[in-house]
Design a protein around this nucleic acid. Structure first.
Ligand SMILES: [Mn+2]
Ligand SMILES: [Mn+2]
Ligand SMILES: [Zn+2]
Ligand SMILES: [Zn+2]
Lengths: 142, 142
DNA sequence: TTTCTAGATTAGAAACATTCTAAAATATTG
DNA sequence: CAATATTTTAGAATGTTTCTAATCTAGAAA
């Protein structure tokens, strides 16, 4: 990846400040990695490896801290699908997922391609925070 | 829980044999714990604790082995919802789940109470293995 | 610019769920 | 009962995530 332009860095910096976070070298690098490309589903380890490849020294602890802060700030969604690791999703629009059972890979499904036409009322004293549809898919054999 | 009747133990024994498993003391105890009560969502740790409480000595490794064997035999479904631990579901019918965001608790939603009326075609070379709908719910405030 | 300090980063330890290993125990068959 | 294939098990190992407490730094104040 080419070095980001001054403008892009200023944008990211402003976005971090707007979310109440100091624009540190680490947060700027992670924000650029996360938001420069299109929609992504990435784990902490993967993002850490990507930063290392770019010769940005960031500890794994900071990657975790930052991913959670970004999630709290509404810049990311955390996905807990297919036990094991957490994925962080840069796609904030209403959408669902294909889940590759073999690899654990996630692929977006636009929200309007899935219609959940009937849902039961939530139990007393609770409200619906969201509805997640996961379409599990496997390699077709034969 | 009262000691299970001879008949129930014979039933479980036959069920294990039918699935190609030797009816060991450990498997019988776990099968009784899992299938005696109604539908359950239970983790390996929880089931292990339940067995200990019943003074059935079973190692945690055996609980994991057995849960996976039961799953392979179609006696259980493994649920990977809400990262962290796996839940094993004794409800084999087509159904979905309420997921309590606070506690991680799962509650069944009968399959026919949820209608997913539109789904996209799976990517080339794959087939749909299943569709899981998770209704995330939170304590209602105010 | 220098100083100050709340906030941020970090290495490494700890926590936690799960899987692995290989030795001992057991169920089943002959 | 003897033989053996299967099962169980303690404990180590693995993989992910969180915690701790020492160090560092961004931003504000002087
Ligand atoms: Mn998390
Ligand atoms: Mn599993
Ligand atoms: Zn997504
Ligand atoms: Zn269920």
């Amino acid at each position: 990846m080419a070095t980001p332009s001054e403008k892009i860095i200023r944008d990211v910096t402003a976005r971090l400040r707007a979310a109440g976070m100091r624009p540190t070298r680490q947060r700027i690098a992670l924000a650029l990695a996360l938001f420069a490309k299109g929609d992504r589903h990435i784990t902490a380890e993967q993002l850490h490896a990507e930063a290392q490849a770019q010769h940005v020294g960031i500890s794994l602890a900071t990657v975790y801290n930052t991913l959670h802060q970004f999630t709290r700030a509404g810049l990311l969604r955390e996905l807990a699908i297919g036990s094991g690791r957490s994925y962080f999703d840069t796609n904030l629009s209403h959408h669902h997922h294909f889940f590759y059972e073999g690899s654990g890979q996630l692929v977006d499904v636009a929200g309007d391609l899935v219609k959940v036409s009937t849902v039961p009322a939530p139990p007393k004293g609770t409200r619906v925070a969201g509805i997640d549809v996961v379409i599990r898919i496997t390699e077709r054999n034969r």
